[in-house]
Amino acid sequence: MTAQETQTPTVERLDDAHSRVTLALEIGLYPIDVLYGAAYIFIDRAYVLLDKDEGVGRPGRYLVHLRGKNPMSHEQLLALCGEFGNELLSQALRRKVVKQNQKIIEEITTQAIAGAAGGTLPTDFLANQDDGLDFLDDPLGIAVPWEEKFKKKKDEPGAAP
């Protein structure tokens, strides 16, 4: 990791009354998929909105707006900011480690799955091997439960049309 990549985002705005916080980080510090990866971790407990401030006369910045799905205290908001910064660092580092060890990871995974399946792997198994290597490690989609819950409520007899 470069020294730049160890920088954490700055708190741009913190609004206790609405459990909202905005973080800013310089564009180029982290690859975009690291930003997505960190944002992804938080969408089950916060509303996340990403934005970009192109910057005039200074480097551009990514803005990360977070709002707690449940009310959060000042301390909890600060902790949320810290955790987001940690997650960025962790994702960036993991990305490098995985890249460095990609061969061994692929070989062990292939062996483990082939061993479990009795040596019969689907034809597209190797082609899709990198599925677990990027920022989305949830093939199911974390957003689904809310949608289902939401729809169910609407479908209930007597629910508003």
């Binding site: 997505y36 509303y47 989609g141 957003a143």
Partner: peptide
């Protein structure tokens, strides 16, 4: 807000 989360999630996917 939920719509925005979905838009972000769909983009990631």
């Amino acid at each position: 807000a939920e719509f925005c989360n979905f838009a972000l999630y769909n983009t990631m996917q």
